[in-house]
Design a binder for these strands. Structure first.
Length: 898
RNA sequence: GCGGAGGUUGCCGAGCUAGGUCAAAGGCGGCAGACUCAAGAUCUGCUUCCGUAGGGGUUCGCCGGUUCGAAUCCGGCCCUCCGCACCA
């Protein structure tokens, strides 16, 4: 697209998208900065393109618009990509070979791949390529202000932020459970886990209950999700084929499977592995059920998975179909006891087994039913009569309080890292958190949320819910790229937490990007963000003042355009941190949530391999076409289906626009008649609607109005044999201005060809006024068109090809009568119309001057039906049908056909 | 389960926050006609059923309710999608 890149170069050279503070009202629009682990796909393209369209629209309407962009490079994924490439992981290498090939000639691919063994090279490579992609799409971005989340100057800003959060007592340290790979020696995220993106692994809380061995101070540790069933334990299970060990936890010796011991050691700070224990030794003793004192035996059960939880299970045949079926299978002959009621009846595992046949299915149905609607038997101590939900909580706390149990965490499913290492739950004992549960803080944010703009509106409610729900949030990790945690150098600031108030940095980044990070102390940032201090390093004085001026002018993000998954993480941090850092000033003003992009009806996901490269699309179709597709095909809050048929349609719309303009370039001369005037008025009307729709963020509706409706009018004009080129000539300037937000490249070309100087991209649009006279003209025209539909309907039913269409319109007295009837006054001169007026009350038109309208646009009807048109006013002769206001009598004279 | 969104005529998708002008926009697909040697593209008309005059019948997930009147309001039910945390 040579023409497109030419304009992109001209925009860059002229610096028209690099705004400075001035007298105009400002508009700051931001999007989430992309994570630079690979090329962008069409989903990114949609969000960023919509932001660009909105930015350009605001500029057109006279705002001083800033649209900045940066790159997110902190976090763990880039590091693990490098790690995998270094290790020779084939899946990753082939994926990245494909990515690189999108940008490079074949012979360069290997060298670049090789450089990816260093994480920074991955980040640098993709951030520079994505920058190019954005330029290729024609985005009006101020590139002077770009920065990356791992830039040293930005790190200074983040550290300032965290020192301030610390001084406000919003940080705390505590223990925290994470998914962890022992072999890798670090925490693992969704991306590190095999199938982690499709089959999510979560952390489940178990209770590890200690059953005291009869003759020793040793405990068998059985983990359960259902501590409330402790009163119905009949026995314990171990797997005789597996090895068991003794572990010291605090001052107790507990027994678990050897496979489980690692989990214990990683979850309990004060723990150590002692020695192996023979299963016979376990089986020979009796054990005491805590809280009840009942003695139970341990049985062999090869179905018990030694890797699951502790490898020891307590058996509750009354409430676990699995336990019941094991007991039957092994012929142990223990009776289950029911201690939970469902609908005032004892819940029974054997009934569930009978109903569902499959024990595992029956078990989960029973679990669900009991959890949501079960009530504990009334004779139980402590939890009698309570709901299962409550009882579970109470029992867990009680058992732990009395030293009979520990909390224990397990993965929701067996999980491995992508290279096959086991994933367990580990506890970090000194994890740093941002304490978002502070109610005072939340209240201030809630207040701002109630004032902000949300599109779609229901996300406001959604955000209130998220604010209610958010508690402590881990904000530091021990690996990955990022800013060192200022309070504790062992940690790196977690990558979502380092990207909360970063849009503020755009306001002055171009002034400090090349400065020595050491000079950017806390005073500096406090000063420029207008945060209370007036003291700055004397050497930085001038710079600080300038930066402060930019911040004060620009800040307060007017619109953040992003996607729904950010609601419960990034966006809530974004709002909370802005409130904490800027004392209620410079707060975000608007959030718009863009729907997802799907492909041929299916969700796009990395694992399916159906991600569509944005670069490929732009190479194939060009920037304007992609932009028009985004604007026109789906409303911003619904999902956008990327498919070839639709883009062909958009292509033809684009072609039509192009043709219309090449036509007026050739021969459009300004001349005005009734019809060009009418077209102009209609266009003004579309323009007004376009403004309204764009202002309420209905981008598609806005462009449908200004493109499809205008083309429709034009088409209509053409069908009536009118000179369309002259009509367009009347409105072309306004039209190209609004089109330029969606298709800026073509628009610039046309702007220039039409002899305009400067760029349409930075032009301002003048508002057009629609007068009363204009309104009546359009009304008359629409009336005649609707009349033509009635004529067509009659023609279809009667099969008469008319040579003469006789129209009899109602007179003043009929109109007066109709008005009276509609008001309920039946005392009128022509009583015969009462029935029809009531019947057709929705279809009458009392305002239009029918005779005038038909006379004015008579030739339209003549052209449409190739017939003569005669119009007369109703004379009052009782024999004929009587017209109603807006519903004249139509008689067709002519040949019957068909 | 909790929270959110949604179920519209062959398909996609408006409308439903202010109930009547909604048989319900627009696009796609289908049919017919014009143009063409022909196809394609383009244009015109039709595309729920009935009807020799602009009309009538039956429709907007299902069942009820409010109302003179409901796709639109209320209640219940069924189904689909999304989020439920330390991950970008």
């Amino acid at each position: 697209m040579a023409e497109e890149s030419e304009w992109q170069e001209k925009w860059a050279e002229s610096g028209i998208f690099n705004p400075e503070p001035d007298q105009r009202e400002k508009y700051l629009i931001t999007v989430p900065w992309p994570y630079t682990s690979g090329p962008l796909h069409v989903g990114h393209g949609r969000t960023y393109t919509l932001a660009d369209i909105v930015g350009r629209y605001k500029r057109l309407r006279g705002f001083n618009v800033l649209f900045p962009m940066g790159f997110h490079e902190s976090g763990t994924p880039i590091g693990s990509i490098s790690e995998k490439i270094k290790r020779g992981d084939e899946k990753t290498i082939s994926l990245y070979r494909k990515y690189i090939a999108e940008y490079e000639n074949e012979e360069n691919v290997e060298a670049i791949m090789n450089s990816f063994k260093e994480p920074l090279n991955v980040a640098n490579y993709f951030s520079s390529k994505i920058t190019k992609d954005f330029k290729t799409l024609g985005y009006a971005i101020d590139w002077r202000r770009t920065f990356r989340s791992i830039d040293p100057v930005y790190s200074k800003f983040v550290q300032w932020q965290f020192r301030k959060l610390g001084s406000m007592n919003l940080l705390k340290q505590g223990s925290h459970q994470v998914l962890y790979s022992i072999e890798d020696g670090n925490a693992v995220g969704e991306d590190d886990i095999e199938d982690g993106d499709t089959d999510k692994v979560s952390i489940e809380k178990f209770v590890m209950v200690l059953f005291k061995k009869n003759d020793e101070d040793v405990y068998l540790a059985a983990a359960s999700l259902r501590p409330e069933t402790i009163f119905a334990v009949t026995n314990l299970w171990i797997n005789p084929d597996s090895r068991y060990v003794r572990i010291r936890v605090d001052d107790k010796i507990i027994i678990t499977s050897e496979k489980a011991s690692q989990k214990i050691l990683y979850q309990f700070e004060n723990s150590e592995l002692k020695d192996a224990v023979e299963s016979d030794e376990i089986l020979n003793s009796q054990y005491t059920v805590p809280a009840t004192g009942v003695k139970v035996k341990v049985y062999r059960n090869t179905r018990i998975n030694p890797e699951q939880a502790t490898g020891v299970v307590y058996s509750v045949p009354g409430h676990s179909v699995m336990d019941l079926s094991y007991i039957d299978e092994l012929g142990i002959g223990l009776e289950g006891r029911s201690i939970i009621n469902l609908e005032n009846k004892k819940s029974s595992a054997s009934e569930y087994l009978a109903k569902y046949k499959d024990p595992s299915r029956a078990n989960s149905e029973m679990y669900k039913d009991e959890f949501y609607s079960g009530v504990m038997a009334s004779d139980l101590p402590l939890i009698g009569g309570k709901s299962v939900k409550e009882a579970r909580e109470i029992m867990q706390n009680e058992l732990i309080k009395r030293g009979f149990a520990y909390e224990f965490y397990e993965t929701s499913r067996p999980a491995r890292t992508r290279d096959g290492k086991p994933v367990i739950v580990s506890i970090m004992h000194d994890q740093w958190f941002i304490n978002y549960s502070n109610e005072e803080w939340k209240d201030k944010v809630r207040e701002n949320v109630s004032k902000m703009n949300f599109y779609p509106e229901f996300y406001r409610k959604n955000m209130f819910d998220v604010i209610d729900w958010i508690e402590e949030r881990a904000c530091a990790r021990k690996r990955g790229l990022g800013t060192p945690f200022p309070q504790d150098g062992k940690w790196v600031i977690e990558s979502l937490s380092d990207s909360t108030i970063y849009p503020a940095f755009y306001t002055f980044s171009h002034l400090i990007n090349d400065k020595e990070p050491e000079n950017l102390d806390d005073n500096f940032f406090d000063y420029i963000t207008d945060n209370g201090t007036e003291e700055v390093n004397p050497g930085m004085k001038e710079l600080s003042q300038e930066a402060r001026k930019e911040f004060k002018y620009w800040y307060g993000v007017d619109q953040r355009i992003t996607s729904a998954p950010h609601m419960s993480n990034h966006l809530v941090f974004y709002l909370m941190n802005h409130m904490a850092m800027f004392k209620g000033r410079y707060q975000p003003k608007g959030i718009s949530i863009i729907g997802t992009v799907i492909s041929k009806g299916a969700k796009i996901s990395k694992s399916k391999g159906n991600a569509i490269s944005l670069l490929d699309v732009v190479k194939q179709y060009g920037a304007d076409l992609f932009r028009l597709y985004v604007a026109l095909v789906a409303e911003v809050d619904s999902s956008l289906d990327w498919n070839e048929t639709e883009i062909e349609n958009v292509k033809s719309v684009y072609g039509t626009i192009k043709n219309v303009f090449s036509l007026i370039l050739e021969k459009g001369e300004s001349k005005t008649d009734d019809y060009t005037e009418l077209f102009k008025i209609k266009f003004k009307h579309h323009l007004k609607n376009y403004f309204e729709k764009m202002d309420s963020f209905q981008i598609r509706a806005g462009y449908v109005e200004i493109i499809h409706e205008t083309l429709k009018d034009l088409n209509q004009l053409g069908n009536l044999g009118m000179d369309t080129a002259s009509a367009v000539k009347e409105i072309w300037e306004l039209w190209i201005q609004v089109l330029s937000c969606a298709i800026p490249h073509l628009s610039e070309t046309i702007w220039k060809q039409m002899g305009k100087s400067g760029f349409v991209s930075i032009s301002e649009i003048r508002a057009e006024v629609i007068s009363e006279g204009d309104r009546i003209r359009v009304e008359n025209f629409d009336y005649v068109l609707s009349l033509s539909e009635d004529i067509r309907a009659i023609q279809n039913v009667t099969k008469i090809k008319p040579s003469l269409i006789k129209i009899t319109v109602g007179n003043e007295s009929l109109k007066e009568d109709a008005r009276k009837i509609l008001q309920g006054d039946l005392n009128v001169s022509t009583k015969s119309i009462i029935g029809n007026v009531k019947k057709f009350r929705g279809k009458l038109n009392l305002d239009v001057n029918e005779m005038g309208a038909i006379t004015q646009y008579k030739e339209i009807l003549e052209k449409l039906f190739l017939a003569g048109v005669a119009v007369e006013e109703y004379a009052g002769d009782g024999n004929k049908k009587v017209p109603l206001p807006g519903r004249p009598v139509i008689d067709l004279e002519g040949e019957k056909i068909g």
